[in-house]
Amino acid sequence: MKFTEEDLRRITMIAINELGEKASPELVKKVVAKTVEGYGIERPVSNGNDKSSGRVILTAYGLNKPGIIASLTKALGEAQCDIQDLSQKIMSDFFTVIMVIDISGSNKELRELQDVMNRISDEMKIKIFMQHEDVFRFMHRI
């Protein structure tokens, strides 16, 4: 069972009445805490136990020019990201890079990494997307 705020208020009122003259804020707090101990634990909600990997997929594309891979890998290296796979294609003047990166050991959150990539994206005039691997797994693997 779980306690609503109203339940707690009611329990507190009972405690105060029972304690009568002795009721001090500290004592009431202690008594109430002891009474509800162990009852208020909510069962965690489970929405299926899909194991989520610590990997993200980085996709970059744009007009080809020297230094793109270098700037990407340099930033990822500095953030302690482990590049597990990398593939690249050039079609006419356009390049596309796809990387599978493990960020579980990184000193940066995905959000921060995305900010770093946004900066590179502006500097190099290319598009960079960084998305959690789960979305690809869900869409393309049953």
């Binding site: 796809i98 997307f129 998305q131 869409m139 393309h140």
Partner: peptide, 17 residues
């Protein structure tokens, strides 16, 4: 690579374009 090139591009295209 755990995903095909085309699969990844398809997802990017759906979400971005």
């Amino acid at each position: 690579m755990p995903y095909e090139f085309d699969e990844i591009l398809e997802t990017i295209r759906m979400t971005e374009v």
